[in-house]
């Protein structure tokens, strides 16, 4: 494998870890192709332009501080794969 290919593989492994996904054998080529495609955005001249996160850039409208939600535990837990005594349960997390 070329140096590029190795670093791509490492990058993909890193990303998979960050995204908690397992990568298959086919994913490498796909990733490389898309990553290369995305590089094209660098060719656009964006000097002096501010990034735009959302079309709605007006000031945020705030909500009154009121308890009008929550206390829906049964509904909350209804779709859970595993619960006990009102808690969500997962395999033990080692700190």
């Amino acid at each position: 494998m070329s140096e590029d290919e190795i670093s791509q593989k490492e990058q993909l492994a890193r990303l998979a870890r960050l995204a908690r996904l397992r990568v298959g054998t086919g994913d490498s080529a796909d990733f490389a192709a898309m990553a290369a495609w995305f590089e094209k955005i660098k060719t656009i001249d964006t000097q002096g332009i501010e990034p735009m996160t959302n079309p709605r850039e007006e000031n945020a409208r705030l909500r009154e501080d009121r308890v009008d939600d929550g206390d829906v535990r049964d509904a909350l837990l209804a779709n859970a794969p595993e619960t006990q005594h009102g808690f969500f349960v997962v395999p033990k997390v080692i700190e």
Binding site: E39, I41, K42, I44, T46, I49, E50, M52
Partner: peptide, 10 residues
């Protein structure tokens, strides 16, 4: 890449 894309958006 990402910020560049956001600029493109504007």
């Amino acid at each position: 890449i990402y910020v560049q894309a956001q600029k493109m958006r504007r």
